[in-house]
Simulated scan of single mutants.
Amino acid sequence: MILITGATGHIGAAVIQQLLTKLPASQIAALVRDEAKATHLQAQGVSLRVGDYRDPAALDRAMQGVEKVLLVSGGGEADGLQLHQNVVDAARRAGVRCLAYTGRALHDRHTLTNELMKRHFLTEDYIQASGLDYVLFRNILYMDTLPQFVGPKVLETGIHLPAGEGRVSFALRREMGEAIANVLAEGDCANRIYTFTNSDAYSFHDVAAALTELSGREVRYTDIEPAAFVAGMQARGLPEFVVNLTLGFMTDIKNGQESAVTSELAEALGRQPVSLKEGLRELMGL
């Protein structure tokens, strides 16, 4: 039995749908906070386990009969690291054979600007110290974030971000979910680390060029100063947390944190990942 946490979220749902093509539904369980939001999974034969990362007793119940757990990283809660640790502790108490985790493919944990990203590495440290067999999936920044980064009026205004000439090997979230499921289904849990990226790294100049080609309208990327970027976000009424988080992403991109390129996603998929141009076509309906 494989338990997928965060099962109604984007990455968890993608993992489960691919697992269903590889394994009988009776071998798949989903940890959900709201059973009503997972009736479609139950209808497919997936076992529902109700609970959340803040409830150790519910986690203990969810782990019963489970051999392998995928811990899908949580959001930006202040106690997010503790929540991850709660899942690891429950897996250890239940005698789970293998714990997998969705982390991040970043160049150097010690020079990150985005404080939230450091939590991924601290979670990995905790897993590695737990004594459990593990597999760590270090995912590159989702290509799915690009519509939010460039904004809904990008074809009229162009791209204005403080990312310099930084490059990112953006890959689609659904393809990373598919690759994670393939690895889990094959049973690999030999304390392995996978770094999932696209086959190329792209700058925001490349994003602008792809949007130009897809839309037939000239789109340009302008590298702006961080202060101007922050002022623009604040003028839109965005919360301080969102402003700081987004600026952290941009600064880390500028500093090369997201530029890794490996073949491991392609190998796990059995094909080349979707390119930037084709991904933008899909994400932005162009």
Rank of each mutant, 00 (worst) to 15 (best):
I140V: 15
L141K: 03
G95N: 14
V46M: 10
R97L: 15
R61W: 04
V69Q: 03
E115F: 10
L112Y: 06
A57E: 13
R104M: 13
L106M: 07
L141A: 12
V88Q: 10
G51P: 07
N86G: 05
N114W: 11
E67Q: 15
Y134S: 01
A78R: 12
L136N: 08
D125N: 04
Q128P: 08
D89T: 14
M63R: 04
V69F: 11
L48N: 03
A78Q: 11
D133C: 14
L106Y: 02
N139E: 14
Q82E: 08
A129R: 14
A90T: 12
D52C: 01
Y126I: 05
A105L: 03
V50F: 03
Q44A: 15
R93V: 13
L132Y: 13
S47R: 15
V135A: 05
D125Q: 13
R109H: 10
G74M: 10
L71A: 08
P56A: 07
H107P: 00
L83I: 07
R104N: 13
V66S: 03
A129K: 15
D133P: 12
R61H: 06
H110F: 11
A100P: 14
D89L: 12
A58K: 06
R93H: 14
Y53K: 09
Y134N: 11
G45N: 14
G103A: 10
A94C: 14
L112D: 05
G95H: 12
K68M: 13
D133Q: 15
V72Q: 03
M117L: 13
I140F: 10
R49E: 02
R109D: 02
A58D: 02
Q85Y: 08
Y142V: 09
G51F: 11
H120M: 06
M63N: 03
K118V: 09
L83F: 09
D60M: 10
Y134Q: 11
V50Q: 06
M117I: 01
V72M: 06
D52S: 09
H84L: 00
Y53G: 01
R93F: 06
Q64H: 07
A78P: 01
N139S: 05
V87A: 06
T102Q: 07
D79M: 00
L70P: 00
V87S: 02
R54V: 11
G80I: 01
C98Q: 14
L122Q: 04
L112K: 10
G76E: 10
A57D: 12
T123P: 02
V96E: 12
L99T: 01
L106V: 09
F137P: 12
G65Y: 09
M143H: 05
L141C: 02
L136T: 04
G75I: 06
F121Q: 03
L116S: 03
N114D: 02
Y126F: 14
D52A: 00
L112P: 08
A94H: 12
